[in-house]
């Protein structure tokens, strides 16, 4: 009689790279579905373009570096980068925007620094910032959410917008795009309007912007599932939301007519996406428990400061990159005491 013998280790590891990446992708689905509902089919086209570009770029550069191609592609890290970049882009961004961003993220921000595990900056956010700095016009052309859209774009229209950059004849550029909630808050505050007057504008909804708040909520659901699955560390999102919330409360309590409410800041823009999916990238975030809290607080504070005093309406990408830069120093300063050694 023959018994099957199983070699050690007998306990399967709970999280490997590909399983973590797969869970992150799964957790993004509610948010992506909400974005597709409110902003149209373009998000899926962006994701498809970004994923294909990132996979090809990753395969090419792995080949160039003499690394295993298929095995590395299977870890899904390039796909997570591509999806995170694609969902940050305006849903009607021309195809070359997505391609350039994905190429920069994979080739320069990831592989020139040594590939997965060695990149000091979050690749998706590096790609996003490159695009935002280089092509400000198409990067700020967001369509309005479906609730207030005056025009309805068919699937063919969206595809033509993305691939051929052709608007349907009957639709003007102004009808196609609308200022985002953070954008209109920033411009109108600059025109000496009060927050309560601005909040009556049509883009604003219950907490932040119509459509946007539900997308943010969907990302929150996905993020909480990631926390429950122990894929991400709770300290980073907690620190980030706390840092942003505290500063926003401070501003709101001092002058509620010139500083938006903390609830607005927490649910607007990319705050929740950033808190659970972008700042928590295990490669580029701080690694010690205490360091992660400081790292999160730093990002939250930077988001608020740049949103209020910076040149751009939203600031998650810049804040994450700046905090990435601090992560090694944070790890060094917050090293836990080794048992038996003096601090």
């Amino acid at each position: 009689m023959k018994f099957s013998t199983v070699l050690s280790p007998h306990l399967q590891p709970v999280n490997s790279v590909d399983r973590v990446m797969l869970k992150v992708l799964l957790a993004l689905i509610p948010g992506i579905a909400a974005m597709a509902w409110f902003f149209g089919i373009g998000i899926w086209i962006n994701i498809a373009i970004a994923t294909v570009t990132a996979a090809l770029a990753e395969a090419f550069i792995l080949k160039l570096r003499g690394r295993p191609v298929i095995a590395t592609l299977k870890d899904l890290s390039a796909m997570v980068t591509a999806v995170l970049l694609a969902i940050s882009l305006p849903v009607i961004a021309p195809w070359w925007i997505t391609v350039v961003g994905s190429l920069f993220a994979i080739v320069i921000a990831k592989h020139l620094y040594g590939g997965l595990g060695y990149n000091p900056f979050n690749p998706a956010m590096a790609g996003y910032v490159l695009l935002l700095v280089s092509f400000p016009l198409p990067m700020t052309a967001w369509p309005p959410p479906v609730e207030i859209a005056t025009v309805h774009l068919s699937m063919a229209d969206v595809a033509r917008l993305i691939f051929l950059e052709q608007r349907p004849d009957a639709i003007s550029f102004d009808a196609l795009t609308r200022a985002t909630p953070l954008d209109s808050l920033k411009t109108q505050l600059g025109l000496n309007q009060t927050v309560s007057a601005i909040r009556d504008g049509e883009v604003f909804g219950l907490f932040s912007g119509k459509g946007w708040e539900w997308v943010a909520l969907a990302y929150l659901v996905g993020g909480l599932w990631l926390l429950w699955q122990k894929v991400i560390a709770w300290q980073i999102p907690a620190g980030l939301l706390l840092g942003l919330g505290l500063l926003a409360s401070l501003g709101f309590s001092i002058d509620s007519e010139h500083y938006a409410s903390p609830l607005f800041h927490l649910s607007a823009g990319a705050t929740l996406l950033g808190a659970f999916f972008i700042a928590t990238d295990p490669v580029t975030a701080a690694a010690t428990a205490c360091g992660r809290i400081i790292y999160g607080l730093l990002i939250g504070a930077l988001i608020y400061l740049i949103r209020i005093w910076g040149g751009y309406p939203d600031a998650v990408a810049f804040s994450v990159l700046l905090a990435n830069l601090c992560a090694p120093a944070l790890d060094y300063v917050t090293r836990p005491r080794v048992f038996g050694h003096r601090a």
């Binding site: 320069i108 490159l130 700095v133 280089s134 092509f135 400000p136 016009l137």
Partner: peptide, 15 residues
């Protein structure tokens, strides 16, 4: 060509 600002800005020089 609508231009790529990054190449003209200082980071483009470093890269």
């Amino acid at each position: 060509y609508s231009g790529m600002l990054l190449a003209i800005l200082p980071p483009g020089a470093f890269i």
